[in-house]
Nucleic acid binder design. Sequence first.
DNA 1: ATAAAATTGATAATGATTACTATTATTGAA
DNA 2: TTCAATAATAGTAATCATTATCAATTTTAT
Lengths: 124, 124
Amino acid sequence: MNYSKQREIILKTLRENPIHPTADMLFALVRNELPNVSLATVYRNLNQLAEQGVIRKISALDDKVHFDHNLESHYHFICIKCKKVYDVPYDVAPDLAKALREHTGLEALAADVLFKGICNHCKH
Amino acid sequence: MNYSKQREIILKTLRENPIHPTADMLFALVRNELPNVSLATVYRNLNQLAEQGVIRKISALDDKVHFDHNLESHYHFICIKCKKVYDVPYDVAPDLAKALREHTGLEALAADVLFKGICNHCKH
DNA sequence: ATAAAATTGATAATGATTACTATTATTGAA
DNA sequence: TTCAATAATAGTAATCATTATCAATTTTAT
């Protein structure tokens, strides 16, 4: 993987944002710094970075894929009103893979948890 | 919601199948009984049934939306090789909403858990 | 029986994502 | 540094799951 300015700025932009942005949200942000960047470049690099394990993809809703720079084990809460995605600490549901193994014998490589509800901000 | 033969057979077909089929899988199955059924009718009815709470949509698998006739609380395991979706009993991770509330104060209306790994069948 | 409302099949449209391609940038060795 | 090989880019076309549209048909309530 060669260096590219675009990839550097896409990654930097993702890391600066706690909002779990989608590809098109990042496209808009990155264009502030690189006005000629292509949407295809954003998608290409996000997929490469996810494949390398530098970032994570989260399929939060039924529609767009969101990206997460936080590699630590954690879960997500999506607000069904504003669609914002919040981090949920791992401690809320630790050792799910172990529980799965003990109950079913299945070996999980990953365990994704997605809570859905209305966030505190939207309740008011 | 009026009665329709198509809806009846779509629902019956989903209930007869433990495979968490997608819309196009159901389309193929339903066409055995109703050769003139339209793909749009399958989508339309699955969405209606899900909206009524008669069936459930499961997303976040891989692009396509799968449908589940099992309304009891339970989770899913997807095999990353054969893409089959298996049910995982609720007991593997009970009371996630309560744990979320106690840790974060957030109120979850739903908690989806998706395990990813290689199923026993694909291991051989 | 009949009119209003719901549903259908066929197909066009949508929207997120990926593929393609000619051009440009990066790299490592001579 | 120069240069050829490789990788990445911008722009755009293509893909593919899903939705929307609409005239025709079916269901339902009166």
